[in-house]
Design a protein around this nucleic acid. Structure first.
Length: 284
DNA sequence: GACAATGTTACAGT
DNA sequence: CACTGTAACATTGT
């Protein structure tokens, strides 16, 4: 899940449940999704979880970290071990570990409590990498990230990016090297919210439109984080629960429906290879 | 069967 | 060299 609010929800969950646990064992069931030496994190204690764009970093107390990207269908699932029965854990409508569970972390804390962290990924696009904490920022993915909305992306910085680019504004919003964390859902909804057509060349936006868009991005992302992310597809949090933000989508996946503001029919087009939703009445 | 799906990246072309 | 567009990764659901 993918976009900033979903990954942030995962981060909050991991931070809440993993701290103080030590990694006892790692079972890698699909080698291509796990790189680096697992031995470097065995017996290390989890001391924090950070997020950069759509990427996660689980920090350990021995100067190593686990860098994670869940791409489209990756899930991080936490399960306290059931003391009474040694059966699989049921999460939502599936049991763990199942055939899509590709990495399993066995965890133990100081009180002798045991738990598992499962990495589950239907499409197998995601990755987990063991790296020295100092070297996380050198990984190609993290090195290439632009500014973070809600953090270091200022209105002035955003204005500069927008004015300098001639690419369609939606593609700029989704360009991780320029702005980190916005994906297809939030690009669509932020543009509707600011009443800007997704195909508009970035450098054609007025100052007012740039300001509106900046605030629309913040608003949409904050609301989604508050709702626990969007479970429009297969996103769930670390406990297997769905988010609620899909109930508040403005135009994403709303093609054929009436615009909530003007009543015109929401259209779907293709831009940069991605489904793009907008209201022809409101967005110019 | 065809096509699209929250993402990134490699590669071909301009 | 920089930028842009498309295919590819693998699987499921419509």
């Amino acid at each position: 899940m993918p976009e900033l609010p979903e990954v942030e929800t995962i981060r909050i969950g991991l931070q809440k449940y993993l701290l103080g646990f030590r990694i006892q064992d790692i079972v890698i069931r699909l080698a291509k999704q796990f790189t680096g030496d697992p031995e470097n994190v065995i017996d290390a204690e989890i001391i924090g979880v950070r997020r950069f764009g759509k990427g996660l970093v689980i920090d350990l107390d021995n100067k190593y970290s686990l860098a994670v990207h869940v791409k489209m269908t990756g899930q991080m699932l936490f399960a306290q071990q059931n003391r009474t029965k040694n059966k699989e854990q049921r999460i939502g409508n599936f049991e763990l570990p199942d055939k899509y569970t590709h990495v399993i972390f066995a965890l133990k804390n100081k009180n002798g409590g045991r738990a598992f962290l499962y990495y589950r990924d239907i499409r197998q696009f995601g990755w987990i990498r063991v790296v020295k904490t100092d070297e996380v920022k050198d990984l190609p993915f993290f090195r290439s990230l632009g500014r973070e909305p809600l953090k270091d992306l200022t209105l002035e910085g955003f204005e500069q990016l927008v004015k300098r680019a001639k690419t369609p504004i939606k593609l700029l919003l989704m360009d991780q090297a320029k702005i980190a964390g916005i994906g297809n859902i939030y690009a669509n909804d932020a543009l509707f919210s600011a009443k800007i057509h997704p195909k508009r060349p970035a450098n054609s936006l007025s100052n007012q439109e740039i300001t509106d868009l900046f605030h629309a991005i913040e608003s949409v992302l904050k609301k989604s984080i508050a709702a626990g992310g969007a479970s429009a597809n297969n996103y769930i949090n670390v406990l297997g629960e769905k988010g609620a933000y899909q109930e508040h989508f403005l135009v994403y996946k709303k093609d054929g429906k009436a615009c909530r503001l003007c009543g015109e029919e929401i259209k779907k087009i293709r831009l940069g290879g991605r489904g793009t939703f907008y209201c022809p009445g409101c967005q110019r």
